[in-house]
Simulated assay, not measured.
Amino acid sequence: MQRCVVVGRRYPSSSSAIIEKNEREKKKKCSRRFRRSSTVVGNNNDNDDDGRRRNQINLKANERANERRKQAVIELSKREEACKGYCNLCGKTHTLERTREAEEVAKALLEKLRKQKSVSDEDESGQFLVEDVYDQRTGGKMIGVLLCETTTTTTTTTSERKVLKAFSGQWMGEWVVPGWCPPLARLTHDSLEYIEEREKIEKLSEEIKRLEKEASWSSSGSSGTAATAVTELKTKRKNMSRALLERIWDSYSLPSFRKERKMSEGDDDDNSDNSNSSSIRSSSDIENNRRKLVELNIRKCYYGDASKLPCGCGDCAAPKLLAECARKGWKPIAIAETWMGPNVKRGAGLREEGVFYGACLERCRPILGHMLCDAALELE
């Protein structure tokens, strides 16, 4: 019988065709597997290339966005743009500049604070430590000064310069620090109303945790009942938190330098017939007709969508300074805000100690127009 040799082995000639066919099939399968693997590798490489291209595009887009934000910060930090906003009441844009004199006062304050143990000259308990603001993780604070003018009338009228100082937000958890401008919100975490509401919300949170724990090891029927109760309590807690936040916003009262005359009862139309128009008003009538500041809730003076007030609106240094100045009856002359603490990344870029910045775009400027209204008028 004729024999053939394949791969070093002998097979009958009748089987040679089958063997050769099997070998060809193996080669085809190997070839197909190679092509598939090559395609997968090629696709993976294409996907990797696409991913790298997308990452590069996103990186460049982020760089451009950061550059735009930095340029915006630079523009807002110009002396003539330091404190500016549009007033809904009078329809005008009001501005308060940052002057070299104000910058020097702010620098002197910064140097003084660095040498002190406490930020408050009246603090004897060591509660408001300067070192806290230099913490690398949580430190850093924007501080500001406002140069003001006040008049004293005796035999002659004389003017005097005053300086107010304020910090943004809280000082390490405290809203009120002696010697610094107070917050604009009357309802803070120190208020009894706030404390009572927070206690109610925390009790709900504890009850929710208890029910969730019970539902985890209860039977299916009782766990379903507990889950329903948890859902109801979470909804109640959410509504209570929202209501508390609304009351906090309601407590923000923002004064402006614009004044309106407070009329006495004798000037009402109903009583005009009973009054003698030629008579001289008494001193009490004159007192009742004194001019008072126009104070509005933050929602009414916010230039923009007041239903979406940004968190921290009204808590920065500039609004605190202007509010205190208006309530004291002083006239604002110039403002300066600078960073105190470690250099950190915040928002549009680096915050550096000793560098002067303008009022923030989203939280401050929409309300500064109202607060600066009639600030340029002479003191009465």
Score class of each variant (00 low, 15 high):
residue 203 K to T: 15
residue 207 E to Q: 11
residue 171 W to D: 01
residue 171 W to N: 00
residue 213 K to A: 12
residue 178 P to E: 04
residue 227 A to V: 05
residue 172 M to K: 07
residue 229 A to Y: 06
residue 177 V to C: 09
residue 153 T to L: 08
residue 116 Q to W: 13
residue 224 G to D: 15
residue 109 L to T: 05
residue 161 R to I: 12
residue 170 Q to W: 00
residue 115 K to R: 06
residue 212 E to S: 04
residue 210 R to D: 09
residue 218 S to K: 08
residue 142 M to T: 07
residue 118 S to F: 05
residue 110 L to M: 14
residue 184 L to G: 09
residue 124 E to N: 07
residue 158 T to D: 09
residue 179 G to I: 05
residue 197 E to N: 12
residue 196 E to V: 10
residue 108 A to F: 12
residue 129 L to F: 01
residue 225 T to C: 03
residue 165 K to D: 02
residue 141 K to P: 01
residue 165 K to T: 12
residue 173 G to K: 04
residue 211 L to T: 03
residue 213 K to I: 03
residue 128 F to I: 01
residue 146 L to G: 04
residue 180 W to K: 13
residue 179 G to P: 10
residue 212 E to G: 15
residue 196 E to W: 13
residue 207 E to S: 15
residue 222 S to V: 14
residue 167 F to W: 12
residue 231 T to V: 11
residue 234 K to A: 13
residue 227 A to M: 06
residue 206 E to S: 04
residue 188 T to W: 09
residue 120 S to T: 10
residue 193 E to K: 07
residue 169 G to V: 00
residue 200 K to G: 07
residue 139 G to I: 02
residue 115 K to V: 12
residue 223 S to P: 14
residue 125 S to Q: 04
residue 111 E to A: 12
residue 151 T to C: 10
residue 190 D to V: 11
residue 208 I to C: 12
residue 214 E to D: 13
residue 121 D to I: 11
residue 189 H to T: 10
residue 147 L to N: 05
residue 146 L to R: 07
residue 218 S to N: 14
residue 148 C to M: 07
residue 203 K to A: 11
residue 155 T to C: 04
residue 182 P to G: 08
residue 233 L to Q: 15
residue 212 E to W: 03
residue 150 T to D: 11
residue 225 T to L: 05
residue 154 T to S: 13
residue 204 L to I: 08
residue 223 S to N: 06
residue 114 R to A: 08
residue 136 Q to C: 00
residue 193 E to I: 03
residue 197 E to Q: 14
residue 115 K to C: 06
residue 231 T to H: 15
residue 222 S to C: 12
residue 148 C to Q: 06
residue 197 E to G: 09
residue 150 T to N: 12
residue 219 S to E: 14
residue 133 V to G: 00
residue 134 Y to N: 00
residue 218 S to F: 03
residue 234 K to P: 05
residue 179 G to K: 10
residue 173 G to F: 07
residue 218 S to Y: 03
residue 192 L to T: 11
residue 121 D to K: 06
residue 224 G to S: 11
residue 168 S to N: 09
residue 194 Y to L: 02
residue 128 F to C: 05
residue 227 A to W: 10
residue 148 C to A: 10
residue 130 V to Y: 03
residue 153 T to M: 07
residue 167 F to L: 13
residue 116 Q to V: 00
residue 170 Q to P: 02
residue 205 S to P: 05
residue 172 M to D: 01
residue 166 A to N: 07
residue 132 D to N: 02
residue 112 K to F: 15
residue 155 T to Q: 03
residue 230 V to F: 10
residue 173 G to H: 01
residue 196 E to A: 05
residue 184 L to E: 11
residue 204 L to A: 14
residue 136 Q to F: 00
residue 168 S to A: 14
residue 209 K to Q: 01
residue 191 S to K: 10
residue 138 T to H: 11
residue 229 A to Q: 09
residue 150 T to V: 11
residue 123 D to L: 09
residue 200 K to V: 11
residue 165 K to M: 01
residue 109 L to C: 02
residue 161 R to Q: 13
residue 219 S to A: 09
residue 213 K to L: 02
residue 164 L to F: 03
residue 199 E to A: 08
residue 142 M to H: 08
residue 148 C to P: 01
residue 140 G to S: 07
residue 155 T to S: 03
residue 214 E to S: 04
residue 176 V to Y: 07
residue 198 R to K: 15
residue 166 A to Y: 08
residue 214 E to F: 07
residue 235 T to Q: 12
residue 167 F to T: 14
residue 174 E to Q: 02
residue 186 R to F: 04
residue 192 L to C: 06
residue 112 K to H: 08
residue 196 E to T: 08
residue 137 R to S: 00
residue 221 G to R: 13
residue 117 K to N: 02
